[in-house]
Write a protein that binds this DNA or RNA. Sequence first.
DNA 1: CTGTTAGCGCTTTCAG
DNA 2: CTGAAAGCGCTAACAG
Lengths: 362, 362
Amino acid sequence: MTGNTPDGPTAPPLDAGARRSSPATLEDVARAAGVSLATASRSLNGSSRTVNAAYRSKVLDAAARLNYSPNLSAQAVARGSTMTVALVVADITDPYFSSIAAGVVAEADQGRLIVTMAATERDSERELEIVRTLRGQRPKVIILAGSRREGDPSQAALKSELEDYERAGGRVVLISRNELGFRTVQIDNASGASALAASLVELGYRRFSVLTGNRELKTAADRLDGFTTGLERAGIRVEAGRVIQSAFTRDGGYEGMQALIAAGVQPDEAVFAVNDVMAVGALSALRDAGLTPGADVAVAGFDDIPTVQDVWPTLTTVRVPLVEVGRTALRLALEETDAAAVSSASPVATSVVVRDSTPRRP
Amino acid sequence: MTGNTPDGPTAPPLDAGARRSSPATLEDVARAAGVSLATASRSLNGSSRTVNAAYRSKVLDAAARLNYSPNLSAQAVARGSTMTVALVVADITDPYFSSIAAGVVAEADQGRLIVTMAATERDSERELEIVRTLRGQRPKVIILAGSRREGDPSQAALKSELEDYERAGGRVVLISRNELGFRTVQIDNASGASALAASLVELGYRRFSVLTGNRELKTAADRLDGFTTGLERAGIRVEAGRVIQSAFTRDGGYEGMQALIAAGVQPDEAVFAVNDVMAVGALSALRDAGLTPGADVAVAGFDDIPTVQDVWPTLTTVRVPLVEVGRTALRLALEETDAAAVSSASPVATSVVVRDSTPRRP
DNA sequence: CTGTTAGCGCTTTCAG
DNA sequence: CTGAAAGCGCTAACAG
């Protein structure tokens, strides 16, 4: 092949001296420093062995001069373990998950760990598949941030997959309910929702509806249960017809609220959406129906994602320190104590934040 | 080394109570299938060489039985290249970046690529440091999604670092302006802003202010320029005092709008925030000042992040297909054509979306 | 088509 | 303390 490109006269400069140069290897460094491979390795990594200071600085010098950067894959092969943390979320664009991801990334950063990311798109078959292919990475940690589903057929397979992984030395952390028997960052969904219910009652509401995401989602179920429990303490019941199931997403909230509106809303009613993105969708549905959220129908959510402070009315919700949850997940993974002890650690606390979407009733 | 230990019926792994079982290796599979390492490798990976069907299925069988999963690190070392895409963003919780990330992850998924993620927190020193440590990963692709800064001292260092990386066979893709000489997903900031200006004029606005993020940010500068150019075409100028610099974030928008309010806003005024998160902050600032966004002061943004459809009033903005931008970035990286040709590809188109925050003026 | 055998870059015994 | 050498798991020439 002569390299005749039909591109025309002004063909771009081919390999204009830009010969493909591979990065320096440890061997290059060792040679440049005049020491053995072993000594170079020992000087550059944090080996427990000590190296003569003179040699050591020679090596460091050579490494800097050659712009050496250790090949992590090679280290992984030699050491038999990686520095990788695999994070599996449902949907990266969802603020709930992106906040958690930010926490994981921030924490990883401090431990020189690398974070890889995958998205299940809320499909548990896909989640299982992702976890399976993750094995190839041999990550040190797998963090599963999507929530578990009740009676999910792939759950058992997932569990056994994760157990195999732990048996091989990996660490699993779930962000959800402590369900599958792994380390877990538990979020106190039930008592948070319960506290919210109490707050709403205190604010003067007596009639309630709930937009519950897919009820099979444990998180959704726990929040619903907590909420109804909280109301029961005040002697209030939610009518069965006022609990709407829809998707655990913004659009699910929108549609759920539409259904509620169609069935007729009362002016003294408060609607609890089991997460903020749903609540935000609900606000839009109200508005699109010509109603004024807050004044006509109160709305509350759960999570306290950043945007709820910028919607109008600002949203009453239950605050979950999501970034911190992400950090905690990774810390938990790295903890050396016994898994069982760790996962039973107290759930992260939540707190009710009352804003404008649930004005005090006269 | 002969090591031909009597194979015998050394059945599958009977490590029933094994404390810590390491994953099966290719050698295990080869032995179990009664073939050589090479044959096992050839059957399991998509090698160009063909393998006798009988052998092949024996290997596949054994692999399945042993639950074999190739060690990606080892493959990387042997092949001399990884399947990793490194994505560097400013802030994962920012919808702009999380949407792009979602696109990158989705696209990577189709190519069996692994995405690693790092956050610069909008600090370009940190960005440089991240890119430096990224080298250890030997990623196949590095995607930089933060935007470049004018006259940034670390820019030169970053450029040379990235050039070294490309020289070693890596691929760099920037999401921004085509500035550093790498493949770039360009967003048509100037003409988008220009079109927005035209739309606002058409809606009846004659007086304008701009909340421009850090002006050194090329993206911010381009959007500002495009906007003023668009206005000039209609014979309108923005008073110097009505261009406010603040952070390129939600809080920056909030503070910028406060400054504008303090200086006095006119009822026939439209405020252009150079991105949606700033615009959303601006809406809140207006509300906190007792003004009604839309009615009292019009506001428009840029990006069309998901939340702007749920704020009130819904936000007029310039739509950028962010998820698609992420996908495009990765596709561009993998493209085999010449880099120069690729990066000059036409910028992704933007379009004005008029919503309620800029009502038509009487 | 199959098996043997060198590596890939790095770590870690194991002798000196 | 240092260096030679044996791997780590996998791929890719290179011979049969």
